[in-house]
Design a protein around this nucleic acid. Structure first.
Lengths: 222, 222
DNA sequence: ATTGTTTTTTAGACAAGCCTAAACTTTATT
DNA sequence: AATAAAGTTTAGGCTTGTCTAAAAAACAAT
């Protein structure tokens, strides 16, 4: 219901600022932005300036960029498209969760609201994408969750795999092959202090040793 | 399998040249092209020159443009995408045949072959789109048909509605409401010489009077 | 506090795609 | 055949988004 007033490029910047600024100080820096969009700091700085002039971004020179209300609403709308397409691709066309991101990057720019709404309806107004990320509704509202990183659990605690922090195809494929997919029950059997690695039990059956890095990128609902 | 080496704009021109040059002399003229793409003759002339320099179009100044072999292959690949998406939208998301064109105009530019092939497979390698137009296969080959315009049939002849010449939403909606959709049996009950209009019988049940213009835009398989 | 390093911004240039205005060809008319 | 009309191309300019190089600001370190 919002932005076909912004070019693909502008939309990509808005999305990148949204994702990057989800850190401690809520700010996206020029270099990060350039790196995320595979361009130069000069170009990123330029675009931040333009988006700031268009009233989507608040930007203090040399101090990074944040989205304002309008920018955030726009970002959420783009993310809604991306995540609905991702879910559609897995649910209908049976793609794996590690395959869908690049296609959704293109499909998110298809502007027809008629189409997007039909997909939303077809999927029965879903609230999470194949990676457990929330899908903003048509008003830009997202379902709040309080997932815990698996890596912070103690021995004998357990929960359901509900999302991932890291979205690379490699990591997702690793999880897939290890049988750690969304909805699995997972229990901490042992926790090794010296390297923060874990022995876990998946669905009460398969036991597995996972590194701290893997554990910190798996989100659990207790 | 071919062209993500061409911009959206270039692809739109290639497609337009393909469609426009399906006439007597097999040529697309600057003005037609400009009109088809809602731009000026100057811009169209420019682009024709560029496409000619890139080796897709043969262009004799002041004499119009045609696609060469390479251009035609490219056009067929773009049309394949367009028509597969159109069929997908009607078959899966239950859009009407008069709704799908604008969405497919956007979706045809999504470049993933992985996605296109999956859709092709999902639809079981279809050979016709919702309007009866042939879908080129992955090699660019199209199923040849010899449909007849309803408007050229004589009294008591009959056949199956298999396509349309005119693709406007208005015309398609008219056909829909009149019950003249793809696959219908249609029989000429009467033919009026003075205005070339017809009385027809649809599926042996509903009789209807249609104008010459309507009749000439309906394609029949005898 | 001054110096050196890192990061960000500005300046100037370029390609794509579009426009308007002007020039040029072809076609139609007398 | 000469001229008018229609259609096409070229010229020059604008915007978007990109780049490299240079300037400016911020941060780090002695």
């Amino acid at each position: 219901m919002l932005p076909n007033e912004y070019s693909h490029t502008e939309q990509n910047y808005i999305k990148a600022i949204y994702h990057l600024s989800r850190n401690e100080d809520g700010t996206a820096y020029t270099q990060q932005l350039a790196s995320a969009l595979s361009t130069t700091p000069a170009s990123a700085s330029d675009m931040v300036k333009k988006l700031s002039e268009k009233g989507l971004v608040s930007h203090i020179p040399y101090r990074g960029a944040k989205l304002n209300k309008r920018g955030e609403k726009t970002a959420l709308y783009i993310i809604r498209r991306h995540r609905l397409w991702e879910l559609f691709l897995t649910e209908v066309l049976k793609f794996r969760w590690d395959e869908v991101h690049p296609m959704a990057e293109e499909l998110e720019h298809v502007s027809s609201d008629l189409l997007l709404d039909r997909i939303d309806k077809y999927l029965n107004y879903p609230r999470f994408d194949p990676h457990g990320d929330p899908i903003p509704d048509a008003q830009g509202k997202i379902t709040e969750t309080n997932f815990t990183r698996l890596g912070t659990l103690d021995k004998n605690q357990s929960g359901t795999i509900s999302g991932v922090e890291e979205h690379s195809a490699e990591f997702l494929q690793y999880l897939q092959e290890a049988g750690m997919v969304l909805g699995c029950q997972i229990k901490i059997v042992n926790r090794y202090d010296f390297d923060k690695s874990f022995d876990v039990l998946i669905n009460g059956k398969k036991s597995l040793h996972i590194s701290s890095q893997v554990a910190m990128n798996i989100l659990i609902k207790k």
